[in-house]
Simulated scan of single mutants.
Amino acid sequence: MTEAKLGLIVVSVIIIAFAFAMRRFGVLQTTGVVATAIITVAIAASLFLTQ
């Protein structure tokens, strides 16, 4: 696994964790967190598979 692929995984997890933290503090609604998670996974998967 290259450093770029490892970076994609790490950054994706951080983005999703940050979205859940924002939900816990009441900044985001549940639909926003779900949308963030789905979009993040989709983008990371497409970049991961094309490298």
Rank of each mutant, 00 (worst) to 15 (best):
T2K: 14
T2S: 15
T2V: 13
T2C: 14
E3P: 11
E3L: 14
E3F: 13
E3Q: 14
E3H: 12
E3N: 14
E3I: 13
K5M: 10
K5N: 11
K5D: 12
K5H: 12
L6K: 12
L6D: 12
G7H: 12
L8Y: 01
L8W: 01
L8I: 03
I9V: 15
I9M: 15
I9Q: 15
V10H: 13
V10F: 11
V10D: 13
V11H: 11
V11F: 11
V11Y: 12
V11A: 13
S12K: 05
I14M: 09
I14S: 09
I14L: 10
I14Q: 07
I15A: 03
I15V: 06
I15Q: 06
I16F: 00
I16V: 06
I16S: 03
A17S: 15
A17N: 15
A17T: 14
A17Y: 14
F18W: 04
F18K: 05
F18H: 06
F18A: 04
A19P: 00
A19L: 01
F20R: 07
F20W: 09
A21R: 04
A21L: 06
A21W: 00
A21Q: 01
A21C: 05
M22T: 02
R23C: 07
R23H: 09
R24W: 08
R24T: 08
G26E: 08
V27Y: 07
V27S: 07
L28F: 09
L28T: 04
L28S: 08
Q29W: 05
Q29N: 11
Q29P: 08
Q29T: 09
T30R: 10
T30N: 09
T31F: 11
T31Q: 12
G32S: 00
G32V: 04
G32Q: 04
G32A: 01
G32D: 02
V33I: 00
V34D: 01
V34Y: 02
V34H: 02
A35F: 01
A35Y: 01
A35M: 07
I38Q: 08
I38D: 09
I38T: 10
I39E: 00
I39Q: 00
T40V: 06
T40K: 03
V41G: 04
A42E: 12
A42I: 12
A42H: 11
A42R: 11
I43M: 06
I43W: 07
A44P: 05
A45F: 02
A45I: 04
A45P: 01
A45C: 06
S46C: 10
S46P: 07
L47V: 06
L47W: 03
L47C: 03
L47T: 03
L47R: 03
F48V: 08
F48M: 11
F48W: 11
T50P: 11
Q51D: 10
